[in-house]
Each structure stands twice: as C-alpha cells, then as structure tokens.
Write a protein that binds this DNA or RNA. Structure first.
Lengths: 120, 120
DNA sequence: GTAAGCAGTTACCTAAAAGAAAGCAGTTAC
DNA sequence: GTAACTGCTTTCTTTTAGGTAACTGCTTAC
C-alpha cells in the first residue's frame, strides 16, 4: 500500500481552514454547544433545558433552539394534548457532534487546570 | 478495578458545560482557530499568516495574535536585526489544541458533505 | 526616486449577539 | 382566586466582534 508521505501543502492548510470554518458556522456562538450538551444529556422540556444552562435567557434559548432545529441538530416534537407539551431531543446528527464536544471538554478541563491549578 | 457505572447526573452535565465554556472562552471567535491552524501548519511571519487566511485583516490578525500570545497559545519572537523581524510559532500548548481542531475538521467536512453532497 | 515589502496602528462605523424585563395564553395546585 | 408552572414572544438597550481604510517608520529592489 506504500503511499507517498507528502509534506502538508498550502492547499492542505487552506482545506483545513475551510472545513473548520464550516463547522464553526454551525456550532459556534456562546450557547449552541451548551444547548446540545443539555439535550444530548437528556433534558427535553424548554424550561428544563433553560434551567440546566446557567444564565441563559428564554429569548436566546428559543432562538438557538429554532436554529438548531433548522439544521437538524435537534428534533422538536409537539404533543398536542392540552396543555401543549413540547419535547426537544437529540438527533443522530447531533450525536455526531459529541466528538467535538468531548475534545472541547478535555481541552477546557486541562486549560483550567493549567491556569488555575485546580479542577472544578 | 470494578468501578460503579453511574448514570450521568445533573452535576456531570453542568461540569461538562463549564469546561466547554472555559474552552470556548479561549478558542472561540471567527479567527482564533484559523490562526492557530496557520501557525501550527508552519507559517511564521505576520504577512505570511495574513495571506494564508482568506479575508482576514491586519487589525484583526494583530489583535488575535496578541490575545493568543497572552494565553501562551503562540510564541512571538523578535529578531532585532534591522529590519526588525518577527516570528510567530506554535507552542506545546497550542499543539494541545490539535485534537479540537481535528474534531472540528472532521465534523465540518462531514457536515458539508451532508448539506452539499460533495467535498471541497 | 518610487514602488513594494515588512509589522503593525489608528480611527471610524456597522451589524449582530446578547442582556433585561415584562407579558401572554393556557393549566394545575392549594 | 391567586400563585406558579408551561412555552414561548416582544421590546428596548447595551455590548462586542468585526469590517474598511488609511497611514506609519523602516528596508530593499529596480
């Protein structure tokens, strides 16, 4: 299978950037990943998610949930018993974000230990 | 070694969020990761880095480089021959970000294929 | 002598994100 | 009957990130 081992070219560098940018477009922002964590973890109801994320407001949560739903990173299901009941759940696709989340989690933990010398 | 397998608690969810937030505080923004990629890849000079990142401006680059330097994610070395020569290089610490970068790269590539049905 | 490269800085402006606070229509609990 | 929960929406204000563009002092190349 002897492949040539090529040194990385400028194109590789650029390609890396473009894909990372694609990811950041979807995932970045102060709240999206936290919301995904909450939902993947198992929180389903609007208020439940809201309570699980420190300092998030209803307004921001509603907006971000819509955005994540549009991108199929979250599923919104309405059960129309009265009272109306709404459930947010993870999708297969949102589960694919786990790798990113875990990398961020590991790095963040490590970073805090570096700068504060202690764990949370 | 039989550890108890515990179901994740609310505290686990919160701890995850807090660490991820720590990471995002350092790493987020439109440009920081792209700059890290460029420098890790091997670009050293200010203009070289600038040219390697599509559409970045001098102002933003200068600001972000300072920020990354403060956080020890980049090393800035001045060679004071005349003309003054400045080199930016990756640190051990910035290399630790690679895992995050790779996760973002993989996800971003996958995402693009999902929504566009093609690679870059 | 002028154009172009180096490593930035400065000042001004805008759009988007986010915070704060209140409200609403419906339901349930006491 | 009133307080508290649900899933949001609305308005208003502040903050921040980022874009644009020009300009600096210095050096080398033509």
């Amino acid at each position: 299978m002897a492949k040539k081992t090529k040194a990385p070219t400028e194109k590789d560098c650029l390609a890396m950037m473009l894909s990372v940018r694609d990811a950041l477009d979807v995932i970045s922002g102060k709240w999206k990943i936290l919301i995904l964590i909450s939902v993947i973890y198992g929180n389903k109801r609007f208020r439940e998610i809201e309570r699980s994320i420190p300092n998030i407001s209803s307004k921001v949560l509603a907006k971000e949930l819509k955005d994540l739903e549009d991108r199929q990173l979250i599923k919104r299901t309405v059960y129309d018993d009265s009272p109306v009941l709404v459930e947010y759940t993870a999708t297969d696709y949102s589960n694919s974000v786990s790798e990113v989340i875990i990398a961020l989690y590991n790095w963040g933990q490590n970073h805090r230990m570096k700068i504060m010398g202690k764990r949370r």
